[in-house]
């Protein structure tokens, strides 16, 4: 089957390993991802702080292109892009005059019926259909992850259908179970990593991340699993820094869920580009019992 795909700016740059992993595992799942033609930046978390019209207009153009091309579903892996696009879609549905106004300048006109899905929603549908279980021959033993969702997978600043439990989502845990991994229960799965504060308000971000890390360590985790590239980058790149500042001795690799699924599909670590993490994850994954 074909599905529209919106990678967003980070997946074309610092988190391109995530893009690579997604393409690899989706191919095995038989889903043909079609990148939205000539897509633009969604405005991320910045647009709402600069101009509310842009916060809708930027993702709107992408929705228009995907709909004009006939897609009924678009998969958006980055939590920020996903949240912005979903919220924009519902703004446009609730405000036909605004939709009209934006459509005037767009070559791909918005209808407003495309399903905007996070990567978790798409993967969970493949758990339900049994597809993931079928092709993940290898079950991973020895991982003790905590699943970290961050803010934008379940909390939205607008009335949209929420895909999982707001305070205690279970999507990642459900997927990991299928590949033999039992995730640990913990209290910080939806806490904020600070997002762009790591660059514009460093101390605040380091505080937030240290709190998340401390709970993960206290629960006995040996890694963290995420779907958001922003969360991944923050928790990985700044881990030495916030751990040093907050007296945390442990270090935890921060995996995208796609690399664990990929591994269970028998895709090699080098193909999955696991060596591009700041906190090494290769040693842990190599040491797993293939069962």
């Amino acid at each position: 089957m074909e599905m529209a795909y919106y990678p967003g700016c980070t997946l074309h740059a610092s988190s391109s390993l995530y893009d690579v992993q997604i393409r690899l595992i989706f191919e095995k799942l038989g889903i043909n991802l079609k990148e939205i033609d000539d897509w633009n930046c969604c405005g991320a978390t910045s647009a709402g702080k600069v101009d509310d019209f842009l916060a809708v207009a930027m993702p709107a153009r992408n929705i228009g292109i995907a709909e004009a091309a006939g897609f009924s579903e678009v998969m958006i892996p980055c939590s920020s892009c996903y949240s912005r696009t979903l919220v924009a879609k519902h703004h446009l549905i609730d405000n036909p005059a605004l939709k009209e106004q934006i459509n005037e300048e767009l070559s791909g006109k918005i209808q407003g019926h495309i399903k905007v899905s996070s990567i978790l929603e798409v993967l969970l549908a493949r758990v339900a259909s049994g597809d993931i279980d079928e092709i993940t021959g290898k079950k991973l033993k020895g991982l003790k992850p905590v699943c970290y969702y961050g803010c934008l997978q379940t909390r939205f600043p607008y009335n949209v259908p929420v895909p999982d439990d707001v305070e205690n989502p279970q999507g990642m845990e459900t997927i990991l179970k299928v590949i033999g991994v039992k995730a640990l229960d913990w209290s910080y799965k939806t806490d904020c990593c600070g997002a762009s504060a790591s660059i514009n308000d460093e101390d605040t971000a380091m505080n937030l991340m240290a709190r998340i890390m401390k709970d993960a360590v206290a629960r006995g985790a040996n890694c963290m699993v995420v779907t958001c590239p922003m969360c991944q980058l923050n928790m990985d790149v700044y881990q030495d820094k916030f751990c040093e500042a907050h007296n945390i001795a442990e270090r935890l690799p921060v995996f995208f869920i796609t690399e664990l699924i990929g591994l269970a599909m028998d895709i090699s670590l080098s193909e999955l580009q696991v060596d591009r993490h700041f906190i090494d994850g290769v040693a842990l994954l190599k040491g797993l019992d293939p069962a």
Binding site: A13, S14, D38, N40, L54, A57, S107, F278
Partner: peptide, 29 residues
Amino acid sequence: KAMLKKKRLHFGFELVKGRREIKKLYKKI
């Protein structure tokens, strides 16, 4: 430097052909 070592620095430059559509909308509003 650290990002470069982990191959997480990206030197490419991407340009969107239809970027004028958003600019026009912004001007109008």
